[in-house]
């Protein structure tokens, strides 16, 4: 029954859903072009191609000075000299530089893109959640004989469906857009999944408790920033504990509120 309700709601909200997807695509395109401009992915590829034809391209590209000591070049381009083979020549240095920079590039793409994307995706999902609280919308489910528990469950499921859909779509676009190897991609994705779920819980909690979408959006963004700062400057364990408390609150408090006050958020 809850599943049918969720499907009905998603179907009825198709315009909002379409809007969210368009917004997401716009955001990702913006993000992608931004990342591409500063990491210069394509120049690496071109450089690699030309190097295979002629090693001198390494110096012609301005990337390294052929006269310089290969170890010096390696250090300049953040390659640990211990990772170089014995008696490394310029080509060995080039291979190491490309490897290190490419790994760094993936990190930057995934890091910058997803760090920014998930709170925004959750924010969009949260904003989509708001119309549900309008009397005319939620009232139809309650007056049609659905219990508060069922309606609450279906609100949560709808929200999760929006978040997962957008997250899946973002992942797909990233995967196809940047041709990122599966291993690196899923490793990063799994690491971010936890983070994303936390953001989703925060946004959900804010949407359920705060009366205005803008207030909820900024509150969830504020808590999210605080947690990031906590990870960086205090301790990941403190941040994790705070996150777990928030997750528990996200499950318990909205239900209590909904049960007592109905849909009047």
């Amino acid at each position: 029954m809850v599943f049918r309700l969720t499907c009905a709601r998603l179907k009825a909200e198709r315009l909002l859903l379409l809007f969210a997807v368009l917004l997401l695509i716009a955001y990702i395109s913006f993000c992608a072009s931004d990342i591409r401009s500063y990491t210069d992915l394509y120049s690496y590829n071109q450089f690699e191609f030309s190097c295979k034809k002629n090693l001198n391209a390494f110096s012609e590209s301005g990337f390294a000075d052929v006269e310089a000591d290969p170890v010096e070049i390696a250090i300049r381009y953040r390659v640990d000299p211990r990772d170089l083979p014995e008696n490394a020549d310029l080509y060995d240095v080039y291979v190491a530089v490309v490897r290190v920079n490419r790994a760094d590039l993936y990190d930057r793409i995934l890091g910058a893109g997803m760090l920014g994307a998930f709170p925004i995706l959750d924010g969009i999902a949260m904003l989509l959640l708001y119309p549900l609280f309008r009397k005319r919308r939620i009232g139809q489910y309650l007056s049609a004989g659905y219990s508060r528990r069922q309606v609450f469950l279906f609100i949560t499921l709808t929200y999760l469906a929006f978040v997962l859909l957008m997250w899946g779509l973002a992942s797909l676009i990233w995967l196809t857009r940047f041709h990122i190897p599966f291993g690196a991609f899923w490793e990063s994705q799994l690491a971010w999944l936890g983070f994303n779920l936390l953001c989703a819980a925060l946004a959900y909690l804010a949407a359920m408790l705060l009366p205005r979408p803008a207030a909820a959006f900024f509150a969830s963004l504020g808590v999210w920033l605080l947690l990031l700062l906590c990870i960086k400057y205090i301790s990941a364990w403190v941040a994790l504990s705070a996150a777990l408390v928030l997750l528990a609150a996200a499950l318990v408090i909205p239900w209590q509120q909904f049960r007592k006050r109905g849909f009047e958020v």
């Binding site: 009825a12 909200e13 315009l15 909002l16 009397k135 005319r136 919308r137 009232g139 007056s143």
Partner: peptide, 11 residues
């Protein structure tokens, strides 16, 4: 039930 505001999706 017919309430003050009609049930449904405006769009």
């Amino acid at each position: 039930f017919v309430l003050e505001t009609p049930f449904g999706y405006e769009n």
